[in-house]
Simulated scan of single mutants.
Amino acid sequence: MLIEWKGCLSRRIVDLNLIRSFVAIYETRSLTAAGARLYVTQPAVSQALARLRRELNDPLFRRVGREMEPSALAVSLFPGFRDALAGIDRTIDGVVGFDPALSTRRCRIALSELGEIGYFPSIFRAVRTASPHVRIEAVPLDVQALPEWLSQGTIDLAVTSSPVDGGFPHIVLKSQAYAVLMSRDHRLAGTTAGITVEDYINADQVVVSGDSGLPRLESALRRAGAALRSDVVVNHFASLPSLLAASPGLIATVPDTIATGWAQSWPLVLHRLPLEMQPVEVCLYRRTTTQQLAALDWLYDTVVRAVGGTQGEFFAIHGDARAHSAP
């Protein structure tokens, strides 16, 4: 396919495949990765880049370490090229369509530990019901890497309660409050009036190192004139119920949905958090790269329908028999 390039001094016809190569290189920052996306060899991408460099009289990209760094002209061209390709592809998709029942593509969704436990079963059922041949990969969540992953197309979607810089399209799946969890044998377990701020501050605390709610908890404590006590630190939420049950001196501040499930299956008690802590918003983010947009639209909509507005299947973390029942 050819498009007309209108310059200040000339009118040129540019092969659309050159523009696709440009966008793929820009988004992946790699000739090899761009070739894989376009289903061509790396030399073919290099040749396309060389042709476009001649057409535009600009280097467009230069290698810096392992990445292809865009020039100033490339940065200015990218939004227009990307949007033009997206418009063309969506127009073609509107005619040809995307049939999830026939798709064999790989879907990659970044999830935290809790996200994988609470949401992945519902996501898997919804996706596989409509698309039985699709491959689904749950990618361990790395909040710092998310902007790069989403902008380069390394992943399709991400479920996270941590803010992601970059203006990526997203939707709030739920607003998550926190509660205080402890053993039934804890000295505060039997209080009927609820635990006080003083009780909470003075209690020995166990925290999960990767909990995205910690910054908001720390802010709530600062407003109360205190600091978070991390007497015990663990790496995974899954270790909390057995630890709390066996350690009557500890308390933990955890999402109230998971605390409720644990209290039904373990000798644990939950209390309302005696602090004004802003709820954590769990969001679904989608990549901004241009490849397979119809498939991405379908996947995004399917995941939103599967988990939007639900509390998640957090009962699975303690082996509840309901985790194996049909939806």
Rank of each mutant, 00 (worst) to 15 (best):
L9Y: 15
S10Y: 10
R11Q: 15
R11D: 09
L18V: 13
I19P: 00
R20Q: 13
T28M: 01
T28K: 00
R29P: 10
T32V: 12
T32S: 08
T32L: 10
A34S: 02
R37E: 08
V40W: 09
T41Y: 01
Q42K: 09
P43L: 05
A44G: 04
Q47R: 12
L49A: 07
A50F: 14
R51P: 06
R51W: 03
R53V: 13
R53E: 12
R53K: 14
R53L: 09
R53H: 10
L56A: 03
D58A: 05
F61V: 05
R63V: 14
P70G: 05
L73P: 05
A74P: 06
A74M: 04
F78P: 11
P79D: 01
F81D: 00
A86F: 13
G87F: 10
G87C: 07
I88K: 10
R90M: 06
G94D: 03
V95W: 12
V96H: 00
G97F: 01
A101V: 15
T104C: 09
T104R: 13
L114E: 08
L114N: 10
F124W: 08
A130G: 14
H133N: 15
H133D: 09
L146R: 00
P147W: 02
P147M: 00
Q152D: 04
I155H: 00
I155K: 00
I155L: 04
T160P: 01
S161M: 13
G166N: 00
G166K: 00
P169N: 01
H170P: 14
I171M: 14
I171Q: 15
V172G: 04
A179P: 14
V180C: 02
S183W: 06
H186M: 06
L188C: 07
L188H: 07
A189V: 11
A193S: 14
T196M: 03
E198N: 14
E198S: 12
Y200D: 07
Y200M: 12
V208A: 01
S209A: 14
D211W: 02
S212A: 15
P215K: 10
L217Y: 05
S219F: 12
R223C: 15
A224G: 06
A226S: 07
L228Q: 05
V232E: 04
V233Q: 04
V233G: 00
V234C: 01
H236L: 09
F237H: 02
S239G: 08
S239M: 12
L240D: 04
L240F: 11
P241H: 05
G249S: 13
L250M: 05
I251S: 01
P255I: 03
D256A: 13
D256C: 11
A259R: 04
A263Q: 04
V269S: 07
L273I: 13
L275V: 05
L275K: 03
P279G: 01
P279V: 07
V280R: 03
C283V: 11
Y285P: 07
T288S: 12
A294I: 08
A295T: 11
L296G: 05
W298R: 04
R305A: 11
V307K: 05
G308T: 02
G309N: 00
G312K: 12
F314V: 14
F314C: 13
A316Q: 06
I317G: 11
H318P: 06
P327C: 01
